[in-house]
Each structure stands twice: as structure tokens, then as C-alpha cells.
Design a protein around this nucleic acid. Sequence first.
DNA 1: CATCATACATAAAGCGCTTTAGCGCTTTAC
DNA 2: GTAAAGCGCTAAAGCGCTTTATGTATGATG
Lengths: 348, 348
Amino acid sequence: MVSEPGTPGSRVTISDIAARAGVSIGAVSFALNGRKGVSEATRKRVLEVADELGWAPASAARSLAGARTDTFGMVLARDPQNLGVESFYMKFLAGLESELAQRGFGLLLQVVPGAEQERATHEAWRRGRRVDGVILVDLQVDDPRVRAFQMPAALPVVIVGDPSLAGGLTSVWTDDAASMREAVRELADRGHRRIARVAGLEHLAHTRIRDDAFVDEVSSLGLQGVLLRTDYTPDEGARATRAALDGDAPPTGFIYDNDVMAVAGLTVALERDLRVPDDLSIIAWDDSVLCEHTYPALSALSHDIVAFGAHVARRLFDVVDGAQPGAFLDSTPRLRARASIGPAPSTR
Amino acid sequence: MVSEPGTPGSRVTISDIAARAGVSIGAVSFALNGRKGVSEATRKRVLEVADELGWAPASAARSLAGARTDTFGMVLARDPQNLGVESFYMKFLAGLESELAQRGFGLLLQVVPGAEQERATHEAWRRGRRVDGVILVDLQVDDPRVRAFQMPAALPVVIVGDPSLAGGLTSVWTDDAASMREAVRELADRGHRRIARVAGLEHLAHTRIRDDAFVDEVSSLGLQGVLLRTDYTPDEGARATRAALDGDAPPTGFIYDNDVMAVAGLTVALERDLRVPDDLSIIAWDDSVLCEHTYPALSALSHDIVAFGAHVARRLFDVVDGAQPGAFLDSTPRLRARASIGPAPSTR
DNA sequence: CATCATACATAAAGCGCTTTAGCGCTTTAC
DNA sequence: GTAAAGCGCTAAAGCGCTTTATGTATGATG
């Protein structure tokens, strides 16, 4: 592309290209979209002229005429104040974008306070043909949004979450249950008999899945498990940690549902002069640079979230292109053992 | 809004509304857009019918017809892998969105690898009338993007950065120099004589501004200052910290350009059995929940970034509405003193 | 009573593109 | 040999909306 900033005022349209290339606008459209109906010579000529004139498609006109909008949409129903806490979304976004950018797609992002506004946004996008497809995150148990996307005229969608809850729509998921079992086993192998899970928001589907896997694995190994509920904030993580430590027979191993809560938990331990990992072992979900740089470094269930986002984007392109729905397993978060885990205190 | 999911297939347009309300589509358009030319009775009727039919505007048609797109755009020229590291962008986005959502605007986000792709994206948006305005972040010294937005046919823009670099365009900024001075003075007041600044990317404008303020304040107080360059990653933060501590007469006070580097610095101190704040005082830029939950808690230059984002969005609305350009000062990041700062070791 | 605003409404043009129907021609199939 | 199919292209309709020019009443004005 030539980089002249374009003549101010005068917008260049395909009519201009048509005139200059001596063909009809229809031919220009065919040439520009790589469709058959024009000779290679003409196509080349049109492309040259378009380049020369510095043409860029008017996406509005394009989508009005029934074509794609070259845009995917994602809405986040979260409190804006807490959005920055977890690095997950930013990484996920970055991953999505890396794939979208390659095809010249943009991402329309909307942060709304609640579920109802999310639904309304999806409806407006669908009716207004604003996006070509949407990404559904924060899947809930029995999520009403899933039903909306099963309707005949619904937008193409990829659901980020367990296939069992995706109602036959295309989903991309991670095997959180397997990861949870790995974490529990790791602690058990090191002699821990009492393990706490500091869990995230209850209504989120993956929380339930992790809960179940935790309870199941703990009981099948004959361990004692404690389940604590939080909202993902470090405050809550600290609170839950204190509550668990205040009980009699406190846990010696903690598994946190995100990295910031694990950091908060670590701080609680330090406050109480508990040594990590000598007195307490800690595992975080969601590895991040943060985990590598605490002291001691936090063990974490590590997952390439940027790649995850990219994967989701590719699947959405497939759906838009008419691919059959399917459930696609992304890589399983694996335990990255660092200094924060060690043998249980009693066994030392 | 009535929440029927809309009859599948048949899209509701203003013609449908016109037919049902017994008026022309022109009248419907006027009524829907709150413009004069229709009686109150007609307007009410049209609005009712629109509601009843579950109409949503086709944004493509709207913007094709020369009106707004109800969308702002922002492009981030960053390595996707590093985007998740800092919580700044996510908070900033959340702030933007909180304001946009109120007016039914969306945010078109694009993450690109470099400056050239950013420029190309802006050009495509301008030519294709894809957005009503753009937000320019990560302002650089002598930024070529600024010039592009000074052109006659340029898109409305708000520049996030120092007015001295905004070339007369509307800017929203924070007085980083004042914040830096406050941090340096705080350490000086506590008796620190050797202070290190662990700075971010050199080409970013605010890095320079902080650099200058640091150097200036340090020298005017007769202190010894060390300036270390990083790329904002905790790895680099740790490296810089080690380098500074390895010198003879190592600094006793550190000011980091973001929170994750400060955490990394804290870890380096712990590794070396340096006590914080007894041996070393630490201040982070960009307060976050993280800072409150390290041990000891990190002092930080605290700034409400969500509010900052919202402020920027409001200014962009003003620009789009034809407001005169101006430089708008957001609140100044203030030092929030926590456990990580104390008297210099020599003075104890 | 003719005149002129004023308020309300309509018809129609047009935004920039995609896409269908068809044109005159050449090639292939049977 | 003829029918069918393909080629490269054009003309024109239409996507859903905004907006201008143009009526047509109504009431106020002189």
C-alpha cells in the first residue's frame, strides 16, 4: 500500500477506481474481492489503481450490502473496577487480536455492568448486523445466553467453556478438572493431608467444574479438603486464607483460583510467620509473570492464555465460514512447580 | 425495551415502523433521532411502535448515510505477550467503556505489532469511516502519529499524554513530574541519599518526563540518583535492581515505573536477605491490588486509572461534538505510603 | 381576504458497496 | 451439428438509513 495520506475531503470509492481502470464498478468489486468474473489482467489493473488511489473499503457500505462487517464482538459483564485485577482478559484479548489482525478483523468490545445489558448488547449487534460473530466468556451454569445463540437467526458464536454447557454450539475449553486433579495429587504426593481450595465466583461454570474435581480427587485420595468461596479479589483471597488457617487442624496446602489471590495468601502466611513452603504450600491457578517474581516463587497451573485466545478466534472464523459445531480442547493447564510447594510440615 | 428475541429471519427496519405507525420513513427517522419536524404525538407513537417491533438501528446503514458510527477506536501497538503484564490497559479500557456504554457507543480495539501497522489501521478507519474518533496512547517523543491527526480530514482524536507533545490537539494528561518529585522528596525526607529510578521504555514520552523530573529533583536536593532502563517486564526490573545493588554505594531507595517491576525488586531484596523497609525502601508507580498484598505492602504512586479512562472518553465525546482543543489535567498520582518505605539504614 | 410564516409530513436522492440477471461471445459435450 | 456451458464483463437493483427539497395544512398578519 502506498502511504500517501489521501487527498483531504475527497473520499475514494470503487466508482473512482472503475472510472480510472475503465471498467464497471461491479468488475471492480469482483476484482477486489478475489472472486471470479474478471480476467487476471483486469484484476491486476484494478488492484493497481486501487492502490494508487489509496482506496480503503467503506465497511459500512460493505455490511449494508449484505456482506461481512469484518468485526467480531465480545462483551464483558464485569465490574470495571475489578477488570484490571486479573491478567487473564488482557492476555486473552491480545491472543484474539493476534489472529484477527491477520485477517484485517477488528474486535468490538463492550464492558457492561450485568447479564441483562450483555443480552441487550448481543441483540442490538444481531439486529444491527454490527458484528460477524461473537465470543462468549464467563460461562455460567445453565447459562441463558447459550439458549439465545441457539435460535435460528442467532449470530455465529464460540463459547469459551465446557462443552457440556455449550448446548451443542462450538466451544473451546480447557480440561480444568484434570489440572485440578494434578494439583491435588502433587500436594498429596508431598505428604499433605489437609488441602484448601480458595475458589472463585460460584456461578461461573468452571468454578463448579474445579470444585467437583477438587472434592472428588481429595476424597478418592482419602484427604481432607476445605472449599472456600471468594470473588477473585486479593482481599477475599486473604480473608479466606485467614479463615482456613484459623480453624483447628488448618490446611497445609492451598490451591487458589487465580494468581492475585495466591499472592495475597502468601502475604497472609508471611504476616503470621508461617514459612512457605516449610509450613505451607501454595499453588496458583493462572500462571503469570507475577508468580515467578514473588518470594518464594509461586507454583502455578500454567496455561498459555494468549494462545488460547488465538485458538478461540480461529474457531470463530471457522464457524462463520460454516464449519460444523464442535468442542475443541485447548491445552491443559499444567502444574509448574516452583519454590512455593514442599513436603508437608508433619512429614519433615 | 421489550425483550422478545425478534422474529427469526425478518429484520425490523424503519419501513416496518413507518408502515405500522402510518407515517413516512422520514418521519420515523426524525422521531427516532429526536429531531424537530414531527409532532410530539407522532414521535410518541413512532417510539412505541419501534419498541413494540423490537427495532434496533442498523449501524451500517446509519453510518453509510453519513451519520456517526457510534464507535470509537483504539489501537495498541504492543507485543501481545506482554500486554497482560500491566494492569494499566485493562483498567483504562474499563474506564473508557464505562463512559461509552452510557451513550451506546462501542470500542473498536486493535492490537498490532508495530507503529506502521497502527498508522495503517488509523488510515483504514478514516477512509472507511469506521469510527467516530480515536484514542491515542503510548505517546512518544516527537510522535509521527500526532502529525497525522493534524491533517485537515483527520479523525477526531484525544491524545493521552503530555500537552507539550500533543501538537495543539486535545490531550488528557497526568502531572507525572509532580508525582515523581513527591516520591523523591518522600525518600529524601526519610534520609535516603542514594535513590534509584527503574524506568520503563525510553521512547515513551512519559518516561522522559519522569526521567527529567527525577534527575532534576535528585540534583536539587543534593542527592545521588541512578537511572536504570527496562522494558517494564519483571525480569528486567529484577535485573536492574541487581545491577544497582551490585554497585558500590548501592541505592537505599528504589522508585519503579510500574507495579510488577516493584514486586520483582522486592523479591530480589528478599533473595539477598535485605529487609524491606529496614535496608531498602521501595516505591511503585501504578498502584494496584497487587501492591496492597505483597509483604511488606508496597508504597505506590496511586492513580485512579478507571476514572482516567472515563475522563478521556468524555473528552473525546466533546471533540466529536466540536469542542475546541484543549489540554486537560487528570488527577495527579499521589504517593500512598505503605510498609515498603522507611528511614534510610544509615540514619537509624 | 390575500399573504406569509410556521409546523408537520412526505417523497426521493443518495451514501458505497455486493450481487443478480443478462449480454455477446467462445468453448466443450454429445 | 446443435445444445449447453463458460467467460469476462455491464447494468441495475437494493441494503437501511439520513437528509434535502417540496408539499399541505393551519394560524397569524396586515
